[in-house]
Design a protein around this nucleic acid. Structure first.
Lengths: 146, 146
DNA sequence: TTAAGTGCAAATTATTTGCAGTAAG
DNA sequence: CTTACTGCAAATAATTTGCACTTAA
């Protein structure tokens, strides 16, 4: 054991979740902690759907209702903790990486992953119409099996 | 009157619809003609949803069921006559312009229009992962009111 | 004639909501 | 304590489907 010996050990996954929720002034309730840990517990970026996050929470032995997963994902989005990505109309994906970046999407399996942002160079972008400004630019690279 | 005097007058909208359907070997049924005319009758590109196309058909005095609009839109897509565009998960848009091109999307009103393709220059694109190839690149420029 | 196309109503899927109970600050 | 959060079940919205009827070729 190293520093802060009086401090009870807190799993790093929980620490990350707490900090992440605090960033958006969201109460660290049991359910939110469970979802937040599944989302950012390991510090990796992740793409989830409501169903996949629900399944992940159950697998970790956490009990959360599907409705709460939906409500919580919405809350996380509004708080700016997640970005919603729409690829196929049937379901929404949520990305822990909220920076504007491109995605690879497998049309057959529905898999969605980040595409390397540094390998995308947009040299010129159409000008936003009068009275509007660009909120974000979604780039989805649709893949098919070769 | 000019040429082809023996040929009964066919409205140009109908002509365009017939040709358009024929391109995909789709039978020009009454309902398909009605929808095709609403879509490409004036030669302009158009972005519709199932509901908006249904409403447009009714306005033109054509009788089509909503289910048939859905089925027909899907048939048109499979035939390559339309491109489906997904912007917000709640509904699908269909574009008569099937070439890969960027779109402007108003986040507040749900309006979707073409963005000038010549004003978009993608200098570099991430390489498709092993075993895949790029099917298309969706670029949606999300706008907010300024 | 006959397979393809259509219309309806019921089914499905993803998501939201009303409201009574629970828990965090 | 008090207000935000949660869970359930029912509601909603977009879309699909089963099946009997119709129509273009």
């Amino acid at each position: 054991m190293t520093a802060t010996p009086n401090c009870p050990a807190v799993a790093p996954a929980s620490q990350r979740a707490i900090v992440w929720l605090a960033r958006a002034d969201l109460r660290p309730t049991r359910q939110r902690m469970a979802l937040a840990e599944a989302l950012v517990g390991d510090g990796e970026h992740r793409h989830v759907t409501a169903e996949s996050l629900y399944a992940a929470a159950l697998e970790r032995g956490e009990s959360v209702s599907l409705a709460t997963v939906y409500n919580t994902l919405r809350a996380f989005c509004q708080a700016g903790l997640l970005a919603e990505i729409t690829v196929d109309g049937t379901k929404s994906y949520f990305d822990t990486n909220t920076h504007d970046h491109p995605h690879f999407y497998w049309e057959d399996s529905g898999r969605l992953i980040d595409a390397p942002a540094d390998q995308l160079q947009i040299a010129r972008l159409p000008q936003a119409p009068e009275g509007t400004e660009i909120a974000s630019v979604d780039v989805i690279i649709r893949l098919r099996r070769r």
